Computed example of a mutant assay.
Amino acid sequence: MTVISEIEVAVSKLSREDLSAFRDWFQEFDAEVWDKQLEEDIAAGRLDAFAEEALRDLREGRCTDL
């Protein structure tokens, strides 16, 4: 049995209250992982081309108010 399948089995056995607490915890955990990856990508310059394209679009009037 893989770790993932063990987690799936354990999660499927949680009570409603524990599942809710787990869901809240996981959303926070996942957001922190996402934020860390984004910060690393920014620091490494992986998003520079996207930022330059967005700024160029803004300067050239290709952005609209929503």
Results as ranks from 00 to 15, higher is better:
A49H: 09
R23L: 07
R16W: 11
D65A: 13
D18W: 05
G45R: 05
R23K: 12
V9M: 07
Q37N: 13
I7P: 00
I42L: 08
D48N: 10
S5F: 00
L47Y: 03
E32G: 02
L14D: 04
D18C: 03
F26P: 01
K36P: 00
V11I: 15
L19M: 14
L58Q: 02
L38G: 03
W34Y: 15
R23D: 05
W34R: 15
A43V: 04
K36Y: 08
L19G: 10
L66Y: 11
M1V: 08
R56F: 03
D57G: 00
D18I: 07
A54M: 11
W25C: 02
Q27M: 12
K13F: 03
T64D: 08
I4R: 09
A51E: 06
L55A: 08
F26V: 15
D48S: 10
L66I: 09
V3N: 05
A49T: 05
E52T: 09
T2N: 14
R46Y: 03
T2F: 09
D24I: 04
I42N: 01
R46L: 04
A10S: 09
V11S: 04
S12A: 14
E39I: 10
D65Y: 09
E17A: 06
A43H: 13
R59K: 15
D18P: 00
L58S: 04
L58E: 01
R56H: 05
D65I: 13
A49R: 08
F29H: 07
G45L: 10
V11E: 04
W34I: 11
T2D: 13
E52D: 15
T64Y: 13
E6V: 07
D24P: 02
K13N: 02
A44V: 01
R59T: 01
D41T: 07
F29I: 01
E32Y: 04
R59L: 10
W34H: 15
I7E: 06
R56I: 01
D41L: 14
L38I: 15
L66R: 11
A51Q: 08
D35H: 14
F26G: 03
W25Y: 11
M1S: 11
F50H: 07
A10D: 03
D24R: 14
A44D: 01
A43T: 02
A54Q: 07
R23Y: 07
L66S: 05
S20M: 05
Q27Y: 10
A54E: 02
T2Y: 12
I42M: 05
L38Q: 11
D24W: 06
A10V: 02
E40L: 14
D24V: 12
F22G: 01
